[in-house]
Computed example of a mutant assay.
Amino acid sequence: MEGVKMLEKVLLHLDNQNIKYLKLQGFDDIDESDAFPLEFFSKVPLPNIEMLAVVDSAFKEIFPSKLPDTENYAKILSRLKKLELRNLHKLESTGLELLTWVASSNLAWLEVECCASLKLLFTSSTAKYLVQLQHLYISNCEALQSVIVAYQLHDDDDVITFQELKELSLSKLPKLENFYTGKSTLNFPVLKDVMVTECNRMEHLFTFSTAKSLKLLNKMEISKCESLKSIVVATEEVDKPRENLAFPNLEKLSLSQLPKLESFFAGNSTLKIQKNWVEVWISECSSMKTFSQGDVELPNHQNLRRVYIDGVRFSEDNLNAIVSQKFENRSKEAALMS
């Protein structure tokens, strides 16, 4: 691979001890293996590398499963704090679904964009090791069906906790049906910002058990998801009428252009949005009949909350009643026009 050979020559003339960021771009002359050439790290050690970007290339694998010294090469990923993968149209495996690579991961920032052949990112077994991950951005991956897939068919007794994840962004993923396909409980104890747009096969975002872990959630923006029916879906075994769902730090909730959205929370528990200052924006959600199947509690004083539906501000206390009345008005208007 001529590009790799040239890269080796260049790096050999630099002070490798001070290289913390490496960007590899335009590697289209890939040999039969189609794998990222990790071997050159043994020829040109980069002991302090923290950020790696691979863009505009034809690799099918980044951290491949078969290498003569996989354990030694795994140290590369253990040093990485930021990984960017962009415009890799043939990419089928990042290697982050392989335990060998992530067992000692310190990855804090992961951005995956325009990887048209990628179908999954992690397995349930490897996701448990991404304890340092703080930012996860995935966009324009046409084949992606799930971010995390169950490692085993009966992978239902575990808890997967993203201990440091603060930002989650899912954008333009037309085949994404679920964030996670298994039955384990996902926890996001420090997640603050969630942005989801144009994920047209997704029917819900969080389960009730996962939503209970979102104690630090500050902002949620969901838009242009054609099949989305609810943001939080309830299951019989965990959604008990006396068990509340609380978002104590939520300041902004935006739901827009969600034609099949029926409610924010499809459960009977009381939904509590407790932050002193909160904004709720709902627009172009024509199927939304109620905000929650159970009661909704907002801050008492109207100056501490702003509720907008299709651009109109409402000051009433009962968010369910506001949404229901708006749905009835739309239905009447549609009947008159038909």
Rank of each mutant, 00 (worst) to 15 (best):
132 Q>T: 12
1 M>P: 13
274 Q>S: 15
212 K>M: 10
258 L>F: 10
45 P>I: 06
270 T>Y: 03
295 D>S: 14
227 S>L: 10
73 Y>N: 11
163 Q>D: 15
65 S>R: 15
20 K>I: 09
35 A>D: 10
36 F>R: 02
330 R>C: 09
214 L>A: 00
120 L>Q: 14
226 E>P: 01
43 K>R: 12
208 F>P: 02
196 V>Y: 02
43 K>N: 10
256 S>D: 06
107 L>N: 01
73 Y>P: 04
105 S>T: 04
70 T>W: 05
194 V>Y: 01
222 I>F: 05
104 S>T: 10
322 I>K: 00
309 I>E: 00
282 I>F: 01
54 V>L: 10
122 F>I: 01
83 L>E: 00
266 A>E: 08
97 E>S: 05
263 S>H: 06
123 T>R: 00
290 T>A: 08
71 E>Q: 14
182 G>H: 06
75 K>F: 11
103 A>H: 10
249 N>V: 08
140 N>R: 10
193 D>F: 15
322 I>G: 01
183 K>A: 12
44 V>D: 02
311 G>R: 03
8 E>W: 11
323 V>N: 06
217 L>C: 05
156 D>R: 15
155 D>E: 06
150 A>S: 14
140 N>K: 11
47 P>A: 15
151 Y>E: 14
168 L>T: 00
321 A>I: 13
95 G>M: 06
251 E>Y: 09
285 C>K: 04
263 S>N: 11
317 D>Y: 11
271 L>P: 04
44 V>Q: 09
147 V>S: 02
290 T>Y: 08
86 R>Y: 09
3 G>E: 08
76 I>V: 12
43 K>C: 07
19 I>D: 07
33 S>P: 04
252 K>M: 14
153 L>N: 12
120 L>N: 11
278 V>W: 04
1 M>L: 15
117 S>Q: 13
59 F>I: 04
99 L>V: 11
178 N>I: 06
255 L>Q: 06
87 N>I: 02
123 T>K: 00
38 L>M: 07
8 E>Y: 12
322 I>W: 02
93 S>P: 05
291 F>H: 01
132 Q>Y: 15
154 H>E: 15
158 D>S: 09
66 K>E: 15
316 E>Q: 15
120 L>W: 04
311 G>F: 07
110 L>A: 06
254 S>C: 13
9 K>W: 02
169 S>G: 08
163 Q>G: 10
103 A>D: 05
278 V>I: 13
302 Q>K: 14
59 F>W: 12
210 T>N: 05
206 F>D: 03
25 Q>G: 07
17 Q>R: 08
155 D>I: 03
196 V>R: 00
128 K>A: 07
108 A>V: 05
228 L>D: 03
107 L>D: 00
60 K>H: 10
255 L>N: 06
104 S>V: 06
109 W>H: 14
69 D>Q: 07
138 I>H: 01
42 S>P: 08
140 N>P: 02
177 E>R: 10
198 E>I: 07
169 S>M: 13
157 D>A: 14
46 L>G: 01
282 I>V: 12
184 S>E: 06
209 S>M: 06
73 Y>C: 09
157 D>M: 13
95 G>R: 01
250 L>R: 00
88 L>A: 02
2 E>D: 14
